[in-house]
Design a binder for these strands. Sequence first.
DNA 1: ACCTGAACACCGTTCAAGT
DNA 2: ACCTGAACACCGTTCAAGT
Lengths: 233, 233
Amino acid sequence: MTGKTYTSVWLREPRKATSPGRSREEIVRAALDLLDEEGIDGLSMRKLGAKLSAGATSLYWYVANKDELLELAYDETWGAIIVPDPEEAGWRETTSVLAHSMRQVMLRHPWIANLLGRLPALGPNALRVADRMRQAFKLAGFTGFDVDYAGATLTGYVYGMTLPEIAWNSTMAADDYDADTMRAQVRKAAADFPEMLDRVDMDTYEDPRMMRAVAFDFGLVSVLDGLERRLVT
Amino acid sequence: MTGKTYTSVWLREPRKATSPGRSREEIVRAALDLLDEEGIDGLSMRKLGAKLSAGATSLYWYVANKDELLELAYDETWGAIIVPDPEEAGWRETTSVLAHSMRQVMLRHPWIANLLGRLPALGPNALRVADRMRQAFKLAGFTGFDVDYAGATLTGYVYGMTLPEIAWNSTMAADDYDADTMRAQVRKAAADFPEMLDRVDMDTYEDPRMMRAVAFDFGLVSVLDGLERRLVT
DNA sequence: ACCTGAACACCGTTCAAGT
DNA sequence: ACCTGAACACCGTTCAAGT
């Protein structure tokens, strides 16, 4: 009955804002810097403390633990997602812009990938995005739970499409790798799978960035088409 | 020119199999146990060593580092994904079964979520799945790069839909939480977003598991419809 | 109200040394 | 060929103590 209730920064009373000393905002900003520069492993309470010329443990006065800090940083990045006003732009334009913007933000902050399966997105920025997306799908004509299903489908698509892209970028020393040896290695790994070999032999690896952008748009159109089809039947 | 080439377990010569002592398979199996029981943080080289009654550092003879071990465990789980023979089942049935099976496997091994954005899926099991999926889409009528786009769309959808589900499960003490307080807390967090409030007030949280399964299928049908539509235009 | 340092219980990985 | 232990350079978090 009592049960351990779910905890997240966003579900607790914020500590009273007081003037002096450090602030939560400052800490989150510094954490974001560290994350963007060095990735998820680059953020440690000790390093963050040093960056703010404070003891590592001082931070625990502002934040319950590291996960909470990550939740805050996480939501912060969602603030950069562009969502047009659905009333003006129409549902298809709105959701399409949203999807592209979401992908861009994820690519710009690749450490997000480590949080998607671990922390819920309940911050104000995440909610703003979700809210507008729901408006858009309602405007399209979805009702009841279908609004949720449509929304889950779209964000699902974006996450899933962008994650492998991030994984790829992260294992590739972005600057110095050479397309030929790369291709040779993958061909070897795929030796037993004829379909895969076919694919490797296309000039897939010449401009992967471009390729992925095209794939994203192709899929997005398909997903939106599929959703639209739901409306008429 | 020389360039640091991309490294992954799958792109290196396997160490010669020798009879005595521990084996790579044994180590991977033990790692999987630990991961399934305790999650991604439950696996440490020290604990794994202890489980095999070996020194933690002995494992480094079989495996270059922890990431490689994770790559091996990762691919192992993909072995459980069911993919029908496209020739027999047809492309729509094949891809649909694949998608559902992929989701099940991910839910059964939630620690996978932490690897999706970090490690590439180049193991034999992952390739088998990818290969069959390509067969299916070719059979459907896709050609050239469109085969890739369609595949990326489908797996993208599955990843993205299942990840938030995993995140949700992981932050919820699966056994003991009470739907009412949960709802109240979320309602508070969503106070400023009318659309979100609407949604919270539906009986969303009564049977989330069911709800997510329905959402998954709804979206999947939409995605496949959208892809199919590509074929006729 | 805020910050500190010491301390606890951990990590992954290297490497010289053993058999 | 395989395994070990000691050692290095780290972690997140607690907590009594300071101002």
